[in-house]
């Protein structure tokens, strides 16, 4: 593993420097991030681990432009999107940023309850004007790859927690975003499916050059990362992972 400083600039998908986030102010202020540095290259899946309350979700929310950091800098593909020294966000339409460049997989897989599985996944391209049939067929591919194809016509309220999580993963991948942020994506899954999810994420990284950050406690998947960031009291430390190959797993998931 090369040191972050030596990475060629055009290969860097995410670069955080000195990122801080303090919730609230005055006597009730909670400093969740105290200066985080992190670099993720295109095509890389990295792990983010740390004890509960250490600031993992906060980091992902800042990175995903869901909450505003207090200070520091965020660059995506060389473009500075946040700079605390220059007044905060550097782009006006954060929602467009999220839609076009970031895929979210969060701890609680919030789906739209009044849509079925396929339409939950196909929603964004459909709203963006992609013909429904085309968006749905792309959605079906992803759903099949995530092993929930047999549930595609079902209302999401009738799915198990693990099935919902996989539908949420399919939804986050539909636009092939260059950055995917996943918060405990495998928590509700058994080890076969957890590894299948990691394989799909690895596939997205390799095939589309996505940069993927996976927050996890999950002992089943921690050995699969080649590179990890450990976060403690709002600060990160980089370390090398085992990088155990996923192909070794015999699960028969079809990858679209």
């Amino acid at each position: 593993m090369s040191a972050p400083a030596s990475l060629p600039g055009d290969d860097v998908a995410i670069r955080l420097s000195g990122l801080t986030k303090t919730y609230g102010r005055g006597s009730t202020a909670v400093p969740a991030l105290r200066g985080v540095d992190m670099t993720v290259r295109r095509g890389e899946v990295i792990g983010l681990v740390g004890p509960s309350g250490s600031g993992k979700s906060t980091l992902l929310k800042c990175l995903g432009a869901v909450i505003e950091p207090t200070d520091g800098r965020i660059e995506l593909a060389g473009e500075t999107i946040f700079d605390g020294a220059r007044g905060g966000w550097r782009i006006a339409d954060l929602r467009a940023l999220r839609r076009d460049r970031i895929g979210f997989i969060f701890q609680a897989p919030y789906l739209i309850p009044f849509l079925d599985v396929v339409d939950n996944v196909a929603l964004l391209p459909m709203l963006a004007g992609v013909p429904d049939a085309q968006a749905r067929s792309r959605a079906r591919e992803l759903i099949a790859a995530l092993d929930v194809g047999h549930r595609s016509g079902v209302r999401v309220s009738q799915l198990s927690g693990g099935e919902q999580q996989r539908v949420a993963i399919a939804r986050s991948l539909i636009n092939r975003p260059p950055v995917i942020l996943a918060d405990e994506p495998t928590a509700p899954l058994d080890s076969t499916r957890a590894l299948a999810v990691m394989r799909i994420l690895g596939e997205m990284a390799q095939r589309y050059g996505a940069a993927i950050v996976v927050v996890t406690h999950d002992e089943k998947i921690i050995p699969t990362f080649r590179r990890l960031y450990r976060i403690r009291d709002g600060r990160t430390e980089e370390e090398a992972g085992e990088g155990r190959p996923l192909d070794a797993d015999p699960a028969p998931a079809a990858i679209g």
Binding site: R95, L123, L124
Partner: peptide, 9 residues
């Protein structure tokens, strides 16, 4: 909130 999160206009 979900719609806004995933970037719906």
């Amino acid at each position: 909130a979900v719609l806004k999160l995933i970037g719906a206009r």
